[in-house]
């Protein structure tokens, strides 16, 4: 699998590695997918990178590759920001080859990472017709998670026709941030758009939302999909290629 802009792949790994330290990559002719839960089984990430999004892609037989994302992140940090990236696994090999090439083809770096035997648990994610779908700048969402974490461990997300409100309370007191729907959309990237069938009010652990925000550099906008008594879906699109979707189980009243 070859990417002209290897930085896209580095951003994907950076977006996942805090939530899941290691994961099984499923490779087929259609592309690369991954599904993994965090160690406490509260959150899940689902990644799709379609074959047509790569400069070139070939997969002769389906493969499951157990990879340490922490190690892969370290290797990818050595990459120049404009480098292209090729990922290769040879038949019967127990390692993955990560090759980087500088833009003017005067530097070539190759790394081999040993593959791991991982027990993976796969969950069926039902198609959900969410009550509420919010789109907002991903930088804004990152900032809200950071700001709410000052006040408490949990954030309550409430939606109305007018907007969406994030609030948190704790020993210090409480705080809230309300975003109003953008009425005059000039730049789509900066817009806050709320599609609502029913109002929702759900509580989530802000620690996980903050981990999801590590994927924010992938996309200028984030999608949040919510329904009562259903895990939140937080989506970052990977330009033309696929997406990273995070799911988070809500907190419920004791």
């Amino acid at each position: 699998a070859r990417l002209l802009h290897g930085s896209i792949f580095a951003k994907v790994i950076e977006g996942l590695r805090e939530l899941v330290n290691e994961a099984t990559w499923e490779c087929s002719g259609n592309g690369i997918t991954l599904q993994a839960m965090d160690s406490s089984h509260v959150a899940l990430v689902s990644l799709v990178m379609r074959s047509e999004g790569f400069e070139s892609y070939r997969c002769d037989r389906n493969m499951s590759l157990g990879i340490s994302l922490v190690s892969m992140s370290k290797v990818l940090k050595t990459m120049g920001k404009d480098d292209s990236l090729t990922i290769r696994v040879n038949d019967d090999s127990d390692s993955i080859i990560i090759a980087m090439e500088s833009q003017n083809q005067d530097k070539f770096a190759d790394y081999e990472l040993r593959l791991m035997d991982l027990d993976s648990e796969h969950l069926g994610i039902p198609d959900t017709d969410y009550s509420c779908a919010i789109k907002m700048p991903s930088s804004e969402f990152s900032r809200i998670c950071r700001d709410m974490s000052i006040m408490g461990d949990s954030v309550l997300i409430c939606t109305t026709k007018e907007g969406v409100k994030f609030s948190a309370k704790g020993d210090l007191g409480q705080g809230s941030i309300r975003l109003v729907q953008t009425t005059n959309i000039e730049k789509e990237e900066e817009a806050v758009i709320i599609e609502m069938k029913e109002a929702v009010a759900l509580t989530f652990a802000v620690r996980y939302l903050s981990m999801f925000c590590k994927a924010a550099p992938l996309s200028p906008q984030v999608g949040l999909s919510l329904s009562e008594d259903t895990p939140l879906m937080c989506e970052f699109k990977i330009a033309e290629m696929g997406h990273v979707r995070f799911y988070l189980a809500p907190k419920i009243e004791d």
Binding site: M37, S40, Y247, A249, E253
Partner: peptide, 14 residues
């Protein structure tokens, strides 16, 4: 006080 639910409570094992 609220408690954290787990994800397999909502999604089934494949």
């Amino acid at each position: 006080p609220s408690i954290q639910n787990s994800l397999p409570f909502y999604f089934e094992n494949d």
